[in-house]
Design a protein around this nucleic acid. Structure first.
Lengths: 138, 138
DNA sequence: GTGAATGCAAAGAGTTTGCAAGGTT
DNA sequence: AACCTTGCAAACTCTTTGCATTCAC
């Protein structure tokens, strides 16, 4: 499954609004806020309300096809389609730009944690913070 | 520096309330909400207001001695004293109990990331989710 | 037709802020 | 005295909810 092919949302009802939310989100390289999805749909063509976006995201999360992440210290949630290939994010603490990292070093660590903690490990989230090349020069 | 010895807060003014906030936080093994700090101080002996707690935490964060973390999908922030030895947290997705993990596997990974991304890496946060031994039996 | 999805406005949680009063140096 | 910190209430942001209407099956 490459970047431009996304599975179609199969909820209880295939409403146009939910599909729009899903498609808007699926195109993103980086996690986005509910507000950003809302703005993008509202400005482009269709009318939609912010609560519809939240409700759609909630439904997708219940189905396990969308995931919410909290990055940085901000209180607003970021959403992303749960890709086959999981990603982490590197954020510049100065300009706040994010970079997706596809390489994940935690498989062995999870196996080891299962042994030492008796937990059945389900998932993890990793955020890395630093200063990007551009900001280092300023 | 062992668990019971904590450096004293050195802010602009050594007010009693801020020291109380710091001491309350420093005793914790796991990150806590502003509300929990507030309740603990208010119930024990001293009167304090929630905004004072937030303002104290803000000051400590500016000084780099306290750090805010977002764990799970909840919207409220958790605070912890920035320890010499950094920790990660394993959270049970069912009972929400947290477990501190002191073993961090990310040093090599950070070095490698500095080379591939040209970022100067400053810090990272890792949250691991799973099902604890007790909840697996239920 | 039945139940799910939507829009709107209102409510809710968590956090921040303005201002007058009190505390620290 | 100068300036920082506090408490209170109000404001703010993000998210959720109630309800009447609309839409999908």
């Amino acid at each position: 499954m490459n970047k431009t092919e996304h599975k179609v949302y199969q909820g209880k009802r295939k409403s146009k609004k939910r599909q729009l939310v899903y498609e808007t989100l699926a195109k993103k390289e980086l996690p986005v806020t509910a507000e950003e999805i809302f703005m993008e749909i509202a400005l482009k063509d269709d009318k939609i309300s912010l609560s519809t976006v939240y409700r759609a995201l909630e439904a997708f999360m219940a189905d396990g096809i969308v995931q919410k992440t909290m990055i940085g210290e901000s209180s607003n949630g970021l959403f992303e389609v749960r890709a086959n290939e999981h990603k982490h994010y590197l954020m510049c603490v100065e300009c706040k730009k994010m970079l997706a990292i596809k390489d994940c070093p935690l498989q062995d660590y999870e196996n080891q944690l299962e042994k030492t903690t008796k937990f059945k490990i389900k998932s993890h989230q990793l955020q890395v913070y630093g200063v990007c090349e551009k900001c280092q020069k300023n």
